[in-house]
Simulated assay, not measured.
Amino acid sequence: MADDNDKITYEDIKKYEFIFSKAPTMVLKVMIKTTADVVAKFKTKILLVASGLNDNQKSLIKKVFNMNVDEIQQLMDEAYKKSNIKQYKILADKNSKKFIEKNLDELKKLISNKL
């Protein structure tokens, strides 16, 4: 496990809440249930955004890549409790684990060399 300086906190992700709340909750639930490959669906957009990341954003992504899914889900639970954004609650649910693992792995494959 990484030390506290290598951890993402709610404060780190708070400014990106608009991304988490973009997907309607029903759509997110279906994506999770089907273990949809969201990275493949948005590959072009992801690559475009990744090419314009600043050093701080790259550092945050690297920290997420170094977290295990249980830690990410704990962070989602904390974020839900602080923000009441339902998408966080859905992602914190144990049934979302495979969805998160799959998409995190695909994202790592796609952009790790750009960080």
Rank of each mutant, 00 (worst) to 15 (best):
D77S: 08
K33S: 10
Q87R: 07
V39P: 02
V30Q: 12
K94A: 08
M1T: 13
G52A: 10
A23T: 15
M26I: 15
M31Q: 14
D93K: 00
F18H: 15
K14F: 11
Q74H: 05
V49D: 09
V38Q: 03
K22F: 12
L28E: 05
A23Q: 09
K102R: 12
I85W: 02
N56M: 05
N103H: 03
A23R: 07
F42H: 13
I13Q: 04
N56D: 07
L47D: 07
D55W: 10
K97Q: 11
V30T: 12
K97N: 06
V49Y: 06
K41N: 14
A79K: 01
Y10I: 06
I8D: 05
K15C: 09
M26Y: 13
L48D: 12
F20W: 07
V64K: 01
K81A: 08
T44W: 10
T25W: 04
K43C: 04
K43Y: 04
K62W: 01
K97S: 09
K81C: 06
N66R: 07
V49M: 08
K15L: 12
M1K: 15
Q74I: 07
E78W: 00
L48V: 10
L47P: 02
K89N: 06
I100H: 00
K62F: 05
N68P: 00
N5S: 11
K7W: 13
Q87T: 08
V49H: 06
E78I: 09
Q57K: 11
K114R: 14
N5H: 10
K58G: 08
K22M: 13
G52T: 10
K45C: 06
I85H: 03
M26A: 15
D105M: 04
K98D: 11
K22P: 00
I13T: 12
K29D: 11
A50K: 09
L115G: 07
E101V: 07
L53D: 06
T34Q: 12
K29S: 14
A79Q: 02
S112C: 06
L110R: 05
A36C: 14
Y88G: 04
K86W: 01
L115T: 04
L47G: 04
N84W: 03
Y10V: 12
N54D: 15
T25V: 15
V39H: 02
Q74N: 07
I100T: 04
Y16G: 10
V69A: 04
N54L: 08
M67Y: 03
K109V: 04
S96H: 04
I85E: 02
S59I: 09
L53K: 04
G52D: 09
M76H: 00
A2S: 14
D37G: 06
I111D: 02
K97M: 06
A92R: 02
N113L: 13
S51Q: 13
K15S: 15
M76E: 01
V27W: 05
E17T: 14
S96D: 05
N103F: 02
S96I: 01
Y10G: 14
I8R: 00
K7E: 13
F99D: 01
D70V: 01
L53H: 05
A23Y: 06
E11I: 08
L110F: 05
N54M: 06
K41L: 15
K7Y: 10
K62C: 09
K29R: 15
K82S: 03
M31D: 13
I19F: 08
N103P: 02
A23K: 11
E17Q: 15
A79I: 04
K7L: 15
A36Q: 11
L91I: 00
D77K: 08
V38M: 11
Y80T: 01
P24H: 12
E17K: 13
I90V: 09
L91E: 00
V69L: 01
